[in-house]
């Protein structure tokens, strides 16, 4: 049987470390709405691979430092 995994993220920490960046600012730089960033942070939405790369690029970090695929 397939195990359950979920995508977790460090967005809140990374925003804080990057000059206390707001969700609105991150949303603008990633090209999405603030509500989408909020949903990703709260793990209520799993971004597409492209959006995940765009967000990682905003923080200038590799993808695995921003998102984790963890067992539930």
């Amino acid at each position: 049987m397939m195990e359950n995994f979920q995508i977790e993220n460090n967005l809140r920490v990374l925003r804080f470390q990057n000059g206390e960046m707001t969700q609105e600012e991150l949303a603008q730089r990633a090209g999405v709405t603030r509500q989408t960033i909020n949903a990703i942070e709260a793990s209520r939405y799993s971004p597409s691979l492209e959006l995940a790369f765009r967000i990682a690029k905003v923080f200038d970090k590799p993808l695995e430092n921003v998102f984790r695929y963890t067992k539930v």
Partner: peptide, 9 residues
Amino acid sequence: GGVAKDERD
């Protein structure tokens, strides 16, 4: 006010 519609929408 930013993006009007994104992938989630």
